[in-house]
Nucleic acid binder design. Sequence first.
DNA 1: TTGTAGGCGTTATCAG
DNA 2: CTGATAACGCCTACAA
Lengths: 346, 346
Amino acid sequence: MQQVADRARVSIATVSFVVNGTKPVSDETRDRILAAIDELGYRRNSAARALASRKSRVIALIYPLLDHRHHHSFVDAAATAAEERGYNLVLWPLHSDNVSREITSLIQSGSADGVILMEVQLDDERVDHLRRAEAPFALIGRTRETDGIDCVDIDFERSVEMAIDDLAAVGHRDFALIVEDLSGTPLAGYAPPIRSEQAFTEVIASRGLNGTVFRVTHDSEAVLALADDLARRAPQTTAIISVHDEAAFSLVMSLPRRGVRIPEDLSITGVATSTAMGDLLEPPLTVYDAPGSPLGRLATEALIARLEGSSAPPMLQRLACTLRPGESTGPAPADRAPLDRLLEQG
Amino acid sequence: MQQVADRARVSIATVSFVVNGTKPVSDETRDRILAAIDELGYRRNSAARALASRKSRVIALIYPLLDHRHHHSFVDAAATAAEERGYNLVLWPLHSDNVSREITSLIQSGSADGVILMEVQLDDERVDHLRRAEAPFALIGRTRETDGIDCVDIDFERSVEMAIDDLAAVGHRDFALIVEDLSGTPLAGYAPPIRSEQAFTEVIASRGLNGTVFRVTHDSEAVLALADDLARRAPQTTAIISVHDEAAFSLVMSLPRRGVRIPEDLSITGVATSTAMGDLLEPPLTVYDAPGSPLGRLATEALIARLEGSSAPPMLQRLACTLRPGESTGPAPADRAPLDRLLEQG
DNA sequence: TTGTAGGCGTTATCAG
DNA sequence: CTGATAACGCCTACAA
């Protein structure tokens, strides 16, 4: 930096001013400095910068991701958004034993200025620790209470509502919702299945429709057993809304082989699903896609704004999923209990 | 740190020695210092540390990941391995316009001590830039020439060989290989399809078997057309080896509906595939799983060793995929041209 | 608009 | 084994 200053015949401070845009500098000196920087290939040292400014310009994304489904779009968008604003995103593996210690030291050591948390549970101890450590943070997802916290979340309520209304509009009246059963797993308080279920129940009631909820674990056995469950517990169902990737997938694949045509006999919509494989199904799955990268970007931008002193009121942004039409949905069938066929087969 | 020193009645230097294990310190002073650290809740400041030691203890993982398939296991393992050794992993979005500049500044600014590169292409400009910038780096994957570079890679040769031999052992003699056609994409020189194809050709020849290669693009149209292609160009095929997730998936799903039973008429094996959905297929897909997290971990550890002064010869580790048996493979059928049926239909 | 100079919190060298 | 102390490279009042 001194070399740059010498070459441009200014002081080291002035170099700093133009490099950071901290203070106004006359055009001609700026040009001289920029030229010198260029000729010397100078890059400011980030450790020194961090030390002097007390800012690491690093955002930590808490790891591990227990649920690996569509999270790389969050991560991706977060990293990009951070980079655009001169920040770096570091992956911060957090082992469950001493969450509190690790979070405290993350902030106190100055390794990161702020934290992004995803896979937030309704009651999440990590949030408490972050608060206590006075660490700036933003959530992708949200806790039960969000007072004073910046959050972005999928609007499950709206997404489920749209899915239901779309199907109701073409005559369906008997719905089933499939959500993941996370009880007993580390993700037990994970909000998506819970909020989806609530939304489903409410919308069904308010529309005067019929609905049954199925909670299905992640393992393939449970998923494969689902079709029979449906037939037993809700054979009149003509429209299925699935917030469970594997389940939607498995149903579209297996039901036609067992005589239940999709969508002639039964309609299926995925909600907040990873869409990747849906196109290869026959028929292609109708899906409400999760707004993964907007969520990652918004959370990052909100956090950075906060880091840079914004005193705006806490953000609570909720983004609905967007429809990607497939061919797994259609008008309600005349046959009012298509799933009965599964039972007849035995 | 000064406070810790005062409280333990030692100099600041001694505190540094115990915190870093840099120099021997008598047990009793060490204990006093540790106690003081604990009582004061002291954490060493990472920026100051980085500045004084000229080491950021940061590893940059180059972004973007163009191919999002099974990379989170790499990333995951890399982040964890780094953390275990006191390093942080930052995601470094790299835009294609000025790769050289960005890599240079990444290193020269001291934001990272080393770099991990994945999705390496046979001739990869990023590698050249890293070399020129004298940045320590390690590859997941490898370039055509790997002189002096630490690499870990999937052993495609061995994996394909195993897949072929397993099937040959149960009577198959007519093989097809399905790889992704990446020409015209940013991943054009991506090694996996290329190496797989080479390996396939060689093994087929050396075993005196018959084999046909199919290069299929990523889009669902191409994938859906594949079955007919197979029937046209290689109707005698009884065993398919697919290094193309969607293709394997699609075939297992669609062929049975068109009268080609799996595995009675035709066997299918996925190689280096993401296994997630394979279990939900009917039949479940037989797969050689990519060793994602060992690769991420090994690369990270090799890089860190290098950063810490190891002068071991460059590592070139190759890990074969491991078999996860499914039910999509079986003995060769008596019918020697099962795919003919597709043509008869169409 | 530009310059001066005192930190920022550690590490590392060199004595003792 | 322990203590002083000079960097490390930059930021930022404060002065000019």
